[in-house]
């Protein structure tokens, strides 16, 4: 089976009787899912914030991100829970796309693209680590 992706430098699928695995489309579906899920969560957060009589830029604002408190906020249908989860989903969607590409390239033995994918994920991990160390120091 061949992997199909624009920029493969070959004509994917040509000369092959088996349908190529379409990595581009698989990633497109993942991006669509991540975007719709994030927008849905953010919309629920906005509506529940408005229902509670709170608006953007009001003081006191939405409590800061606290992963330990997130499940409780969601269970209690607090706006902060939906807003933070929606933002986390949104920010994680591109990384999920890279992870999906990594799995695809691993499956088809494209070592150079595996290295590139791992490198991107390492940079994202470094961002999280640096952000955490900076917030701890602050």
């Amino acid at each position: 089976m061949k992997v199909r992706s624009a920029g493969s430098g070959d004509r994917a699928g040509q000369g092959s009787l088996r349908a190529p695995f379409d990595l581009d489309r698989a990633i497109a579906r993942l991006l669509t899912l991540g975007t719709y899920l994030s927008v849905l969560l953010l919309t629920v957060g906005i509506v529940s914030m408005a229902a509670a009589g709170r608006w953007p830029l009001q003081s006191p604002g939405v409590p800061g991100l606290d992963l330990a408190r997130l499940p409780g906020d969601l269970a209690a249908a607090r706006p902060a829970g939906f807003l933070w989860l929606g933002l986390l989903c949104m920010i994680a969607t591109p990384s999920a796309r890279v992870l999906a590409a990594l799995l695809g390239y691993l499956r088809f033995g494209e070592r150079s693209m595996v290295v590139v994918s791992v490198g991107i994920l390492l940079v994202i991990a470094a961002s999280v680590a640096i952000g955490l160390s900076g917030s701890g120091a602050a």
Partner: peptide, 15 residues
Amino acid sequence: VIYLVRGGIDPSVAA
């Protein structure tokens, strides 16, 4: 990610 972890994103505005 850096802005988020350092408290630089207000979810009530970003949403």
